[in-house]
Amino acid sequence: MSGSAGMPGMYGTDPEGAAFLPAHFSPGDRVRVRAAIPPGHVRTPWYCRGRSGVVERLCGAFANPEELAYGRPGLPAQPLYRVRFQARELWPDYRENAADVVEIEIYQHWLETAPEDRP
């Protein structure tokens, strides 16, 4: 987690008062999954790391499972997106229908603006 806890205006809070991070991306945004290899419990599949896709929807904010796995609260909650990848982006040698897609749930801290869309 970033060490920004306590910065005013940084987090929102849900009706129960739990902190969540604001969503940085909207449906239709092109994003890339960070090509990171952190140790420990990770819920971003290996096969999409470093790959680009399009945000299909924002699912809400959820406690970070990479923190929950170690008995920590996982707050502020991370926005969770469904990202749509072309199968050929994931597998350059994909042999089935070129229009096929894979949708994967990815937490915001794993996403960055796709390189070709950066200002």
Partner: peptide
């Protein structure tokens, strides 16, 4: 052959 397949990888809270 012309049907698009959409695979959903259920990796998190959905």
């Amino acid at each position: 052959a012309d049907v698009t397949i959409r695979v959903h990888d259920s990796t998190a809270d959905m």
